[in-house]
Simulated assay, not measured.
Amino acid sequence: MLISADRIWIDGQLQTGLAIETDGITVTDLRPRGRDRADLNVPLLMPGCTDLQVNGGGGVLLNTDPTVAGIEAIAAAHRRLGTVSILPTLITDAPEVMEAAASAVIAAMGRPGIAGIHLEGPHLAPEKRGTHDARHIRPLDGRTMTVLQRLRDADVPVLLTLAPELAAPDLLRRAARMGVVLSAGHSMANADQARQAMADGVTMFTHLYNAMPQMNSRDPGMVAAAILSDAYCGMITDGIHVSADMLALTLAARPRKDRCFIVSDAMPTVGGPDRFQLYGQQIRVRDGALINAEGSLAGAHIDMLESLRRLIAMTPATLEQAIAMATDIPRQAMGLHPLRIAIGTPLADLIALDRDLHLTPLI
């Protein structure tokens, strides 16, 4: 089967005049279009999205179903929406839930779409906990360090979001030496504390602007330290969590343009019903947002492709920038191998988009 594309994402840029051959399972050739009649013509061919913050999908929340079946259901829901690689994300919960989620991810590695795990909490600043349950918040401790070591011993990529100002520096450095990717978030850190955290091994910031002190003229805070650094910054681009102006400001101000990426922060309503249970509360979609009984945002009701479209609509970001932020950059941030369109690439890892950047069938 010959698939011709107006534009193909190859090695970090959009290229034209190319086509792929496939046996329906993998890419068997990548070559100039030539004069052969294509079996399928698509406006855009690219690797599927990679999402580093996926709390749930398809009606399943990792916290309430920390099992292999739960993880597979979440990954399958997002794959149907164009995201082919995820970090299932466990938000703050009891230690035994973290341990169960770790065991499930270890068992699920190698299955379609499972790239590792994101532990968002429980080592957070109570003042910036958002929807996270205060009952389970605690300092970084030996029990979590044991879980991190078990995951890394199994070669599982791990992202840990924490408030670095509340963590012992020696534990931060130890986790970084294990190969855990440390991300600052749900934090009250000031600029100096954020910079010290980066010196101690933090290389990322979780959903920039959300659940952290905001910038002002005499107290730039963690946000400014993040923007001015070369650390990776995840951003929720649903237009609800962060305004269009702040997204545009961040993209313009960063010294390295390849260090911002999109996360969905998706909840079970993505690809699923319009409500779910979190910590015994019912959360439902209201005007496109998920809000708990306390009035805090409870994750997001958006997938990665919709996030990409909104980023382009809200900011000066180009299509090339947006594709990189949804594919290559999050993988770089986690040290994952890039998903490339090349001979041998599984067709299931690729997506085709129409001119409005919506999914179109590949076969």
Rank of each mutant, 00 (worst) to 15 (best):
K128S: 14
V105R: 00
G271E: 04
S229M: 08
G17F: 04
D93K: 08
I351Y: 02
A226M: 11
I86N: 00
D238T: 12
E21A: 10
M215L: 15
L44T: 07
N216R: 15
T237V: 14
D245F: 14
E120I: 05
L90F: 02
T22Q: 03
L61T: 06
M98S: 02
D219F: 14
R259E: 05
W9T: 11
M109R: 10
L251R: 11
S103V: 01
P43E: 08
G116R: 00
M304W: 07
L151V: 00
R256Q: 15
G110W: 00
D328Y: 04
V158P: 00
I20Q: 07
P122N: 10
G239E: 11
F205H: 14
M145H: 03
I25K: 12
S229N: 09
R135I: 13
R129L: 14
H118W: 02
D303Q: 03
V158N: 02
P273N: 09
A298E: 10
V84H: 11
R254E: 00
M188R: 14
A225S: 09
R284F: 10
V147T: 11
V42S: 06
G58N: 01
R286N: 14
I8A: 14
Q193H: 08
L353V: 10
H358N: 15
T22K: 01
A102E: 01
M267K: 08
G295N: 12
G221N: 14
G58P: 03
L45Y: 09
L247W: 05
V202I: 15
R138H: 08
C233F: 04
L40N: 03
E294Q: 15
P220E: 13
L2K: 08
V27Y: 04
L2M: 12
V60G: 00
L247H: 10
M222W: 12
V180Q: 01
A189C: 13
